[in-house]
Write a protein that binds this DNA or RNA. Structure first.
Lengths: 183, 183
DNA sequence: ACCTGAACACCGTTCAAGT
DNA sequence: ACCTGAACACCGTTCAAGT
């Protein structure tokens, strides 16, 4: 009872953060909310639409980010990386609408930095594709290396330094190459 | 009867080409082969492993490609794009091993073109992430725009020109930016 | 208006038992 | 060695019927 769109998306989001995308099912969500699975469909048209909404919400903090294009994209990675296996979801959400938060803001930042409008638009598309591919790759690798660590990272601090650092270096390298203003 | 690893992967691949990744399930595969679902697991350890093998096979034609890095990556897109919604699969296959056919060959091509070894290695990682992100985005968009066209494209020729051309332009643009040798 | 119960048409994987 | 039958533990979605 007391079900609502807002409650559903909030619960979906917390499931996503705690257990990863693979554990976000409509039935699991319904169980969490103590409700029959069908009840969700009174408030939400489909799972895909629900996840698109959640993806949007997760990325909204970027809208208040004030740095330049590079800083924006670094913040994007930081925001998304902790959400295990959410990369595929973002790929889908971006395909659904290309104005997903970082993409929405990039062109103006580039124009501010002196880019021509057309170049800024194309570069945004390129950078987004790279960033989504990079994050998805990185998350998939993390998921496949330590397969079922389940819940808490009880390993204290500084857990998976080597690959994460390598991945960060590659990410930064790609961004720098793409965000250098062409002559 | 007469089941084998080779027959299974071949059938999986033909299902993938005909109906897309969403229609490749172990049960569907078993039905196609006139066999109980469990029988597949005598030859294959898991669905994930099966799909990784299929992804590898699809990309092996690239190994005999003789062009430079840019031509190699253009061929990659051509090869993969007709297989609807296979982008996510490739992202996973690449995460499982980073020597997936185009990645395997890129470093030497770059070195041949005068790149330093270290730069070539990093650039390969960057280009792969971009290409995988780009293809996945493009396929997701195609899948979401005309949702259930099902089987044959009965629309004759020259079907979806506008977005496909835009996507190709962005892909090329990104590659050119990444494959220019830095000073 | 909002929700339940029950169904429909599926999944991946395991495993005793058969041949 | 290779496969079947049957089960386990799930899916997303729909929809009559209840309140």
């Amino acid at each position: 009872m007391a079900l609502s769109l807002e409650l559903i998306t909030r619960t979906a989001r917390s499931l996503l953060i705690q257990y990863g995308l693979q554990d976000v099912s409509m039935r699991r969500l319904a169980k969490e909310l103590d409700v029959a699975p069908g009840a969700l469909y009174y408030h939400v048209p489909s799972k895909q639409e629900l996840l698109r909404t959640v993806a949007h919400e997760i990325l909204t903090p970027l809208r208040t980010e004030s740095g330049d294009a590079l800083q924006l994209m670094l913040r994007f990675r930081e925001l998304v990386l902790p959400l295990r296996d959410v990369g595929d979801l973002l790929l889908l959400a971006y395909a659904l609408d290309a104005s997903l938060p970082p993409a929405q803001l990039l062109p103006e930042r580039l124009v501010t930095a002196g880019w021509p409008r057309d170049e800024a638009r194309d570069t945004t598309a390129v950078v987004m594709r790279f960033a989504l591919g990079a994050v998805a790759t990185e998350q998939n690798q993390a998921l496949l290396e330590r397969p079922a660590t389940a819940t808490a990272t009880a390993t204290g601090q500084a857990p998976d330094a080597p690959q994460a650092m390598e991945a960060e270096r590659i990410y930064l390298h790609g961004l720098q190459r793409l965000l250098i203003r062409p002559v």
